[in-house]
């Protein structure tokens, strides 16, 4: 099968959605002639014109508001916030408007919008361009939160998110844009709220999101040489969460490690741990459920400091090995 990058997969998904449905359009900063800060929309201006690939001034609250208003009135906007850090400037429109309008209006309106945004560190962009803020949105009823970890999921989840009649926060990762994977040419969907078992294994369940999924798979490959088999699970949609495959897996392995880049305290990992602890999997646990996540500090600029701020393959190997050997 054909291999393309995560960025190309997103572009193809967006292109297909825009071709199939005239109500779909894209709006954001530098998404036209520049092609988006990470190149996701490159070339789409030529294909669809400036009325459907809309370059905006630097006005994030305006972009979010424009998406809400257009979505309320029959369009399916796909907004781009250039770096996830800048969602902080959209919070009122997303949290107090997009998320709540349907409920407040007694179910009589809907906000079918997608807000795409790149998260994460690893590029030396320092503290104001490296945030992983997905869990802020997980805390808001009315929103859906999606985090694709592969090129295949990126396209399929984007198309499903565009189809969805709710506001979807679509969290991409800077380090994934250039990674390649098999991506079918047709317009397929990866359904929202469908957790994916990425790799099967019987000793430790590793629940990972976004860029941590491939790191967990690499860790699994290394530990397999020692006879330790990790089961790597990617929720893909953080909210609403399909937790059944996670609970099933922990019933099998009796051990669980949750890995994400965002800061540990108050992060999504806490939710996964709580789901496991509050489920029938509790009786099967043979070890404490552990988390491995970003340190409780802003992302530093210096390359080595940055590297040590978030989980790397060797950290996952070490933690999972400790769990498997009962050395926690």
């Amino acid at each position: 099968m054909r291999e393309i990058t995560y960025a190309e997969a997103l572009r193809e998904g967006l292109r297909q959605a825009m071709t199939a449905d005239p109500s779909v359009f894209a709006i954001g900063e530098d998404i036209g002639v520049y092609g988006g800060a990470f190149g996701v929309t490159a070339g789409l201006l030529n294909e669809f014109g400036a009325e459907r690939i809309i370059d905006t001034p630097i006005s994030e609250a305006g972009i979010a508001g424009a998406c809400v208003g257009a979505a309320l009135t029959g369009m399916r906007p796909v907004g781009e916030i250039q770096f996830m850090d800048f969602v902080t400037l959209t919070m009122e429109q997303i949290v107090l408007q997009a998320a709540k309008v349907r409920f407040m209006f007694g179910g009589k309106a809907s906000v079918p919008m997608v807000l795409r945004t790149p998260s994460g560190s690893g590029t030396g962009a320092a503290a104001q361009h490296s945030e992983s803020l997905e869990n802020w949105f997980v805390h808001v009823p009315g929103l859906k939160v999606v985090m694709p970890s592969s090129a295949y999921d990126a396209k399929g989840l984007l198309l499903a998110a565009i189809d969805d009649n709710n506001p979807v926060i679509f969290v991409e990762h800077k380090l994934l844009y250039k990674t390649k994977g098999h991506v079918p040419e047709e317009m397929y969907r990866v359904p929202l709220s469908q957790t994916n078992v990425v790799r099967e294994g019987k000793h430790v369940t590793v629940v990972a999101t976004s860029v941590m999924v491939s790191r967990a798979v690499q860790a699994a490959e290394e530990l397999a040489k020692e006879g330790i088999e990790l089961e790597v699970i990617d929720p893909r949609t953080l909210k609403p969460l399909d937790d059944a495959p996670i609970i099933e897996s922990v019933k099998k392995t009796g051990r669980a490690l949750v890995v994400h880049e965002a800061v540990e305290m108050g992060g999504f990992g806490g939710e996964i741990v709580a789901r496991i602890a509050g489920s029938e999997a509790f009786d099967y646990l043979e070890a404490p459920v552990r988390r491995l996540a970003g340190l409780d500090i802003p992302i530093p600029y210096n390359r080595e400091l940055e590297y040590h701020t978030v989980p790397q393959v060797e950290n996952i190997v070490r933690e999972a090995r400790k769990l498997a050997r009962g050395e926690y």
Binding site: D85, A126, P300, Y301
Partner: peptide
């Protein structure tokens, strides 16, 4: 080394910093 190009500040001289 925590800030880099986009965050250089020299607070002692009331330069409250670049901003990302």
């Amino acid at each position: 080394g925590r800030g880099g190009s986009m965050h250089i500040a020299d607070v002692d001289s009331n330069n409250l910093g670049a901003n990302g």
